[in-house]
């Protein structure tokens, strides 16, 4: 497989590992001072410390959204429709034991155990996260490039897309058994093969120095920073390579609102709201921060715009 080489940021812009760790000391100190509930929420059940080296493609200069907001404000409809539901209703979810099946148009289909994934060399990737609902965060993910995993299963020349499938466990995921049908379960997502092979695309197994909390898609999820957040499928159990464009959950639900590509694009509005700007989360109250402009490809245009050369991104939104 061809190896992509991307310009590495100057070493000065990378947070030294020790500094990164000392941030956590600061948080711990705050906790010791009796601010536990305010500064650092109790670690999610089962979440453990997770070491990672700073990734070269990480946006080290961005200030991460507070951990409390990252873990207590997100969409994960398997647990409910409210943004507080994932944190409130995911305590019973069992992220272990866990395996991911990788098959389809590959030479060497494999089943990965989560422990084997956690034992891989892991990187911290601080990425912008832009939700299709026009809010955004900066999240310090921990994970590895999806391309490394795909290289091991050896995609066939005929493979054009990578399809992902989420877990179905109505007994542990109360949102999967709601009164009204929300989405068809399992949640499914997909990328074009070249998007999946892009070095920015990662499988995340942790965030903020710990294993992935249940509410954020434990134990393993997809992160594609230049696309809207709903492309980042959570609690993945299967990855399948195929030659036909796979169905994706939100696109099936409302094709005029959620495209297959779902690249962050300030020029293409959602039918019900503008995508030109976004509300950064966790900036404190009404007057903490105002809207900020949304960047094409969420600020990753220099790295990924080439994937879409010649395409009409208004049509293929």
């Amino acid at each position: 497989m061809r190896v992509f080489r991307y310009p590495a940021p100057p070493p000065s812009s990378i947070t030294p590992h020790r500094a990164w760790l000392s941030r956590r000391d600061l948080l711990a100190a705050g906790a010791a001072a009796g601010l536990t509930g305010l500064v650092m929420p109790p670690r999610a059940a089962g979440a453990a410390d997770l070491a990672a080296r700073p990734g070269a493609l990480s946006n080290a200069g961005l200030k991460p959204t507070p951990l409390r907001d990252v873990t207590h404000y997100n969409n994960f409809y398997e647990f409910g429709l409210e943004k507080t539901d994932p944190a409130d209703r995911s305590a019973d979810f069992q992220p272990r034991p866990w395996t991911i099946r990788v098959d389809g148009m590959v030479a060497k289909p494999r089943t990965y155990d989560i422990d084997a994934l956690l034992a891989r060399p892991l990187e911290e990737r601080i990425y912008r996260m832009r939700c299709v609902e026009a809010w955004s965060m900066v999240i310090p993910w921990i994970g590895f490039a999806l391309r490394d995993l795909l290289a091991e299963v050896e995609p066939l020349g005929s493979a054009k897309y990578v399809a992902f499938e989420s877990v179905v466990r109505p007994s542990q995921m109360p949102g999967q058994g709601g009164v009204l049908p929300v989405l068809d379960w399992p949640y499914v997502e997909a990328l074009r093969l070249d998007e999946a092979l892009h070095p920015l695309t990662i499988l995340a197994v942790g965030l903020y120095g710990q294993t992935l909390p249940n509410q954020n898609g434990a134990p393993v999820r997809l992160v594609v920073p230049w696309k809207y957040g709903f492309k980042g499928i959570k609690s993945v159990v299967r990855i399948r390579l195929t030659d036909r464009m796979p169905r994706t959950s939100w696109n099936v639900r409302a094709p005029d609102e959620y495209g297959f590509y779902a690249n962050v694009n300030p020029a293409v509005d959602h039918p019900r709201w503008s995508q030109a700007s976004e509300r950064p989360i966790g900036t404190g109250g009404f007057f903490g921060a105002s809207r900020q402009p949304t960047l094409p490809f969420n600020g990753y245009g220099a790295q990924v715009a080439g994937l879409y050369a010649g395409m009409d991104l208004r049509r293929d939104f």
Partner: peptide, 15 residues
């Protein structure tokens, strides 16, 4: 609540 940051992570939206 919103002015004093007690309206959750996205206070404007909740308000």
């Amino acid at each position: 609540q919103g002015a004093t940051d007690r309206l959750g992570a996205d206070p404007v939206n909740v308000f």
